[in-house]
Design a binder for these strands. Structure first.
Length: 283
DNA sequence: AAAGCGGGGGC
DNA sequence: GCCCCAGCTTT
């Protein structure tokens, strides 16, 4: 087992967003994946709810007209995705007994389903052990494992092989969701929040030069009234510890309170969980 | 391998 | 203004 798995899975259990397509039908997963192609989660959320209420199964969408489908897509962008989803729904209704296929090869035959989407539906709708490689997962792992800041525009065969090598044998779909979420919330393309990262001590990007001074600078923006507290944070950052580890192990004895605050990943909520009046973070 | 495809939000 | 976003399809 990769040494990355346990901390990432544990982080995910505590910090994952409550997204509606995490507990839905395979069709619900499929609709979400179409909408999420090159479109951020927050913009998809309301539209996904509308669609699932209006067209709860493939057969329902299949009966709609292209005009209705395009209109309902609204301003999500890439409206061709709506037509492809419509066409895929008709194929599923007619040729697959109204059930979303569960194997990657069949899924990829559907219009609008490429390598990523087929792997994602197989993993998230059917809990299959597929290799899911979206931009978030690729960025997280190219940093943590390869020590590079950004992945290549397209995944090479070598990159796929290296990711397959760390794909857990059990619960690979949870690994996929967890690495995707960590990439989306913490290991962001710009201004990553390394101080909240559960694998900061194992990240080769940081070891290879992502400047610790950046994190230390951030920590000094926390106008803590307690100088000793800030010193502890800076020293721990120099030693590649995450703020989560620091908070729990070194600063605050009440773990449940700290973890509750860290769950949001927001500094302003972190401070609310701190002992009253002792520390203050900006904004 | 690379270009084209939409639009909204962040900085 | 430029960058980014749970990519797919066609050259």
């Amino acid at each position: 087992m990769s040494s990355l798995e346990k901390p990432i899975i544990n982080w995910f259990k505590k910090n994952k967003r409550d997204l509606p397509w995490r507990d839905t039908t395979p069709w619900g997963v499929m609709v979400s994946e179409y909408m999420l192609q090159q479109t951020p989660v927050n913009r998809v959320l309301p539209k996904w709810n509308e669609w699932m209420e209006r067209w709860p199964t493939p057969k329902d969408l299949a009966k709609a007209t292209p005009a209705q489908v395009i209109s309902a897509w609204g301003r999500l962008g890439y409206p061709r995705r709506a037509l492809r989803l419509h066409a895929a729904a008709q194929i599923i209704a007619e040729d697959f007994n109204n059930k979303v296929p569960d194997d990657q090869e069949t899924l990829q035959l559907l219009p609008g389903v490429g390598e990523y989407t087929a792997a994602a539906i197989a993993a998230f709708a059917f809990e299959h052990r597929s290799l899911v490689m979206d931009v978030n997962i690729r960025r997280l792992l190219v940093r943590a494992i390869d020590g590079q800041e950004h992945p290549k525009p397209a995944a090479t065969a070598r990159e796929k092989a290296r990711r397959l090598a760390v794909l857990p044998e059990k619960n690979a779909h949870v690994w996929a969701a967890a690495t995707m979420e960590l990439g989306a919330l913490v290991c962001t393309s710009k201004n990553p929040s390394c101080e909240f990262c559960p694998i900061i001590g194992q990240c080769n990007w940081r070891k290879n030069g992502y400047p610790k001074t950046e994190l230390i600078r951030k920590s000094q923006d926390w106008h803590g009234t307690d100088r000793k507290c800030r010193g502890t944070i800076v020293q721990a950052l120099r030693e590649n510890e995450s703020l989560t580890e620091i908070a729990i192990k070194k600063l605050w004895p009440d773990e449940s309170q700290v973890e509750k605050a860290l769950k949001t990943l927001l500094a302003d909520q972190l401070i609310q969980a701190l002992p009253r009046g002792r520390y203050r973070l900006p904004q």
